[in-house]
Simulated scan of single mutants.
Amino acid sequence: MIIYGTALLAVCHLLGIFIGDLLGQALGVKTNVGGVGIAMLLLIAVRLYMQKTDRLPKLTELGVEYWGAMYIPVVVAMAAQQDMVAALRGGPVALLSAIAAVGVCAVVIAIINRTEKPEVIAELVPHHHDNPLLADSE
């Protein structure tokens, strides 16, 4: 059943690459635009749909979760294949988009940290008096 999760990823990957190629053609570039990201979004959407309709066995879900955890290494490997030198020579757009992405991430993280309630954080931090091993050392 875990293999079904891998098969589901393969279908989503092929669709994502196809849609990324179509998006690249629509934008007038001769490359795939966001195929891996689109594939992962499709995988998330299909998994949520299948869970909601009770069509996702536990073992299949484990296969999907495995590939969901592999998302970052896959994206890093795909990005390593890109020709960054040519992108930077082609104009400052790549550099500006990278700086903008880092800036947006920093702002979103700051907003999330500021909106989180201190009570929730206090509940997550273990107290010394709750742990008998740590209480003896005080």
Rank of each mutant, 00 (worst) to 15 (best):
residue 94 A to S: 14
residue 107 V to F: 10
residue 80 A to Q: 07
residue 74 V to G: 03
residue 99 I to S: 11
residue 8 L to R: 00
residue 114 R to G: 15
residue 106 A to Q: 10
residue 101 A to L: 15
residue 85 V to C: 03
residue 31 T to Q: 15
residue 54 D to W: 01
residue 14 L to Y: 09
residue 131 N to C: 13
residue 120 V to P: 00
residue 98 A to L: 14
residue 17 I to A: 14
residue 83 D to H: 06
residue 71 Y to V: 06
residue 108 V to Q: 12
residue 115 T to W: 09
residue 57 P to G: 06
residue 15 L to H: 00
residue 114 R to H: 15
residue 75 V to Q: 07
residue 101 A to E: 03
residue 134 L to M: 10
residue 81 Q to F: 10
residue 126 P to H: 05
residue 40 M to N: 07
residue 138 E to W: 11
residue 7 A to D: 07
residue 44 I to D: 04
residue 24 G to E: 01
residue 50 M to N: 02
residue 16 G to C: 05
residue 76 V to E: 02
residue 23 L to P: 01
residue 19 I to E: 02
residue 35 G to T: 01
residue 5 G to L: 00
residue 31 T to K: 15
residue 130 D to F: 04
residue 124 L to K: 13
residue 95 L to N: 02
residue 31 T to H: 14
residue 34 G to C: 06
residue 11 V to W: 02
residue 118 P to M: 03
residue 93 V to M: 11
residue 47 R to W: 06
residue 18 F to I: 10
residue 24 G to Q: 00
residue 32 N to D: 09
residue 34 G to Y: 03
residue 38 I to M: 05
residue 37 G to A: 10
residue 57 P to D: 02
residue 115 T to S: 14
residue 106 A to Y: 11
residue 121 I to H: 07
residue 126 P to V: 04
residue 39 A to K: 01
residue 3 I to R: 11
residue 44 I to T: 12
residue 93 V to F: 10
residue 45 A to G: 09
residue 102 V to L: 15
residue 115 T to N: 09
residue 42 L to F: 12
residue 43 L to F: 06
residue 13 H to P: 00
residue 18 F to R: 07
residue 34 G to W: 02
residue 76 V to G: 04
residue 123 E to T: 11
residue 28 G to D: 04
residue 136 D to K: 14
residue 56 L to Q: 01
residue 127 H to D: 08
residue 78 M to S: 14
residue 32 N to P: 04
residue 24 G to K: 02
residue 29 V to Q: 10
residue 30 K to A: 12
residue 10 A to I: 09
residue 46 V to P: 00
residue 3 I to W: 13
residue 136 D to C: 05
residue 122 A to E: 13
residue 74 V to K: 00
residue 138 E to A: 13
residue 94 A to W: 05
residue 49 Y to M: 09
residue 118 P to W: 05
residue 23 L to K: 08
residue 23 L to V: 10
residue 69 A to N: 11
residue 4 Y to F: 14
residue 100 A to P: 06
residue 92 P to T: 11
residue 81 Q to P: 00
residue 66 Y to D: 05
residue 100 A to M: 11
residue 33 V to P: 03
residue 49 Y to K: 07
residue 15 L to F: 08
residue 82 Q to M: 12
residue 62 L to S: 12
